[in-house]
Amino acid sequence: MAGAIERFVPDGSTVAMGTALEPLIPFAAGHEMIRQRRRDLELVGPISDALFDQLIGAGCVRRVTAAWVGNVSEGLGQCYRRACEQGIPRELEVFDHTNFSISLALWAAAWNVPSLPTRTLLGSDILRTNPNLSLGFGLVHVGAVRPDVAVIHVQRADAMGRAHAWGPLGISEEAGLAADRVIVTCEELVDSDITLSDPNRILLPETKVVAVVHEPGGAHPSPVQGYFKRDHAFYRDYAEQSRTADGFAAWLNRWVFEVPDRATYLSRTDAVPLRIRGHRYSAPADFGHE
């Protein structure tokens, strides 16, 4: 993980994360960016369930291009508030979107066009405040957003970068296609036999993937279908501790700076009961050809 972040997420990068909305959030990758004290990042995402709040609080972020930043089960993002309201720990630029419009912004970049038209956002003040949105011919034109890198957490991947993800996908496909490069983090690193047995389930072309990181539990406290339940209590504790800048600093020490890697992090959590044990496998699809 450390090598992938060091090499592919330099200071100033535009980074898409949390693209599956509440599930599959690449917390381990985000925490590594904090540990490496990345600066001046632009974060791109739909909703961000606490991860963006943490990176903002840690001073890594210059701009947020997103539809929603907070803590889904607990409400407001306290670090986001401090940054926007008081410039703590630094001033933050916000380019507001809706979930639909951030998807369109990424599809525009994926299709290599300057913008895509839509009817959403008509009548919303978001149109006035985000310079990448404009009105013309009775439609809203959503300017392309091209991330330098998308970080995607999935259930399983092979070493060639073929990533299998299942469950709702949010805006993961357009984020990966729009990005110059993709970092995949995965619960399981598997042989190509497994990924190639179901090419429909491969999320993105392997030609976009620059790194595959085997990082079990790398999405905690967010859920991973078939692997981990959502750790609601962890989100609640984070909301409480991040109420003050000092409380957030203590949280960051305990959960990011004092843990050298994900295994140590997980040993500090109550993640064992969160592991999903009741499996529900899909029926295999027959790819036979002769």
């Binding site: 909703i47 929603w68 407001l76 309201e85 809706t98 639909f100 959403t120 919303s124 003040d125």
Partner: peptide, 21 residues
């Protein structure tokens, strides 16, 4: 004021999309 808000709320999420569509 959006440039210097008293409270920064999380944002639209899908709210504006639902409201409009």
């Amino acid at each position: 004021d959006h440039a210097k808000p008293k409270v920064k709320l999380p944002g639209s999420g899908g709210g504006a999309d639902i409201a409009i569509l």
